[in-house]
Amino acid sequence: MNIFRLAGDMTHLLSILVLLLKINATRSCRGVSLKTQELYALVFVCRYLDLFTNFISMYNTIMKIIFLASTFTIIYWMRFHKVIRVTYDREQDTFRYQFLVLPCLVLALLLNSEFTVMEVLWTFSIYLEAVAILPQLVLLQRTNNIDNLTGNYVFLLGSYRALYILNWIYRFLTEPNYRQYLVWISGIVQTIIYIDFFYYYIKSWKNNEKLSLPA
């Protein structure tokens, strides 16, 4: 574990905490994409099947459980909480799951390092994570008045990905035989998806204006 990896994981954790806090404190999930949260739930379920088969470290196990539990909590609130669910922008959050899930599944079946159920599902989760933020970005673009915390949530998620790239560079330079091309390419794609958002986020922060994404 290097400092970039730890910082990346902590940023990821913080992003989820910001989202939980926003929804819980304001009793509103306005501007939050349920589709993105459900895609993340699918990502975590497929990736963390090894919770049952392979122990890596206490740290890994606890983080995996936190990511799963927090994502399912957010989904539960958005779908079933009697106050919160009313604030969900159902009509705006129209991205179709199948446009992301099916191509990622096909790609995982074709491009993986081992053709086993566990490994294909793990690879699927890597591909799906790369694009799971898209419904959230589309929803933000349609939201006129983006909540500060929602903006911060997406910014922290993007930062987590950027820190993981630094982690991979560090590991590549320090660990012999450390290579994972599929993960690197997906991670780079995932980070590129955020660049446009970063540009407007930093611009609004510099000018002390409210964040808004041009359509």
């Binding site: 392979n54 470290s57 890994n60 983080m63 990511f67 390092s113 993981y164 035989n177 599929l182």
Partner: peptide, 10 residues
């Protein structure tokens, strides 16, 4: 990917 160690990133 060194599979025998499992995937150690989150």
């Amino acid at each position: 990917i060194p599979k025998e160690d499992g995937h150690d990133e989150l």
